[in-house]
C-alpha cells in the first residue's frame, strides 16, 4: 500500500509510485523522526542505567525474595498500558499525588515557621507553586520508562542468572577492584542481555503514540502520532504505510546490527577461550 496513490476518498491505486516515500523525506517528518529517536534513546539509556542495578539486586537475592521481586516487576505488565498511563497522570497532574504531597509539606513547614514567628520573612515563597510535571517531553520519557523498563530488566536478569559467579571471585583474586570487575568481567558477560533489552525497549518506544498523546504537551509530537493521524483523521493510508515502513526499515537495521554484533562477539569469545 505504501507504493499506492489515493485516487478518491476510499480507493487506492497501486501504481508502484515512490511519491509517498519522497514525501516522507520532507523536513517535518525527518525532524520528528529524529526527535523520536532522541526521546527513545534517552528512555533506553535511562532504562539501562536503572535496569542493571535492579537486575543485579534480584539476581543476588534469596530465592524467596527473587520470586517476590520478579512478580512485582511482571505484575504491572498484566494491566493494560492505558491504565498504567492513567495512573501516571493521576500522580503527575497539577493536583496529582506528587503536587499534593509537596503542598502538604509546604504547608506543614510554613506552619512550623509561623510557630517560630518566621513567616513574615517568606522563606518558602509567598504561596505553594505546583510543579509542572506533565505535558512536556520529560513526562513522555518518564512514561515510556515506566512502561518499558521491565523489558530491560528481565533479559539482563536472565543473563545474570546464567553468569558464573566464580568469575567474580577469580577477578577479585587476580587483583581487580569492583569497577574493573564490573567493566571487564560482568559487562562483557551480560552484553547479550543488554542488547536484547535495548532492542526490546528502543523499538516500541520509537513507534509509541499513546503515551506522547496522553502525557505529552503541545510540543510532544512523535513519529507514531503522525502515522496514527494518517490512518485516522488524515485518511491517507498510503502515506501512513510509507511512514510505518520507514520505521520498520530502521528496526530491521537495528536488528541486523545486533545480529552482526552477536556474531562478532561470539567469535571474539571463542578466540578468548581457546587462547
Amino acid at each position: 500500500m505504501s507504493y499506492g496513490e489515493k485516487i478518491n476518498i476510499i480507493d487506492i491505486d497501486y501504481t508502484w509510485s515512490l511519491k509517498n516515500y519522497i514525501r516522507a523525506f520532507d523536513g517535518v517528518y525527518i525532524i520528528t523522526l529524529f526527535k523520536s529517536i532522541i526521546i527513545s534513546s534517552i528512555t533506553t539509556l535511562v532504562c539501562l542505567l536503572i535496569a542493571i542495578p535492579v537486575a543485579f539486586y534480584i539476581s543476588f537475592s534469596s530465592i524467596r525474595m527473587k520470586s517476590i521481586l520478579l512478580v512485582s516487576i511482571m505484575l504491572p505488565l498484566w494491566t493494560n498500558l492505558l491504565i498504567r498511563t492513567y495512573s501516571l497522570i493521576a500522580i503527575l497532574r497539577t493536583k496529582g499525588h506528587i503536587n499534593s504531597s509537596l503542598e502538604y509539606l509546604w504547608e506543614s513547614t510554613n506552619n512550623l515557621l509561623n510557630f517560630f514567628n518566621l513567616a513574615n520573612y517568606e522563606i518558602m515563597g509567598k504561596s505553594f507553586v505546583p510543579l509542572n510535571l506533565m505535558y512536556n517531553n520529560y513526562s513522555i520519557i518518564l512514561g515510556l520508562f515506566y512502561i518499558y523498563v521491565p523489558f530491560m530488566i528481565i533479559p539482563i536478569y536472565l543473563v545474570l542468572e546464567k553468569f558464573d559467579r566464580n568469575l567474580l571471585e577469580a577477578s577479585y583474586d587476580l587483583g581487580a577492584n569492583h569497577i574493573k570487575t564490573f567493566f571487564k568481567v560482568i559487562i562483557p558477560n551480560i552484553s547479550p542481555g543488554i542488547t536484547s533489552g535495548i532492542i526490546l525497549v528502543f523499538i516500541p518506544c520509537l513507534g509509541s503514540f499513546i503515551i506522547p498523546d496522553l502525557l505529552g504537551g503541545a510540543d510532544s509530537q512523535m513519529i507514531g502520532n503522525i502515522i496514527e493521524r494518517q490512518f485516522k483523521s488524515g485518511n491517507d493510508w498510503p502515506f501512513g504505510s510509507a511512514l510505518s515502513f520507514i520505521l520498520i526499515y530502521i528496526t530491521l537495521v537495528i536488528i541486523s546490527v545486533r545480529h552482526v554484533y552477536t556474531k562478532l562477539y561470539s567469535k571474539l569469545h571463542l578466540r578468548g577461550n581457546t587462547q
Binding site: V28, Y29, Q221, G234, D236
Partner: peptide
C-alpha cells in the same frame, strides 16, 4: 475535499513539529 484535508493535516503536522 481530500486535497484540502491533506493540506490541513500537513499544516497541523508542521505546527506540532
Amino acid at each position: 475535499g481530500e486535497d484540502v484535508g491533506q493540506m490541513i493535516q500537513d499544516t497541523w503536522t508542521r505546527i506540532l513539529a
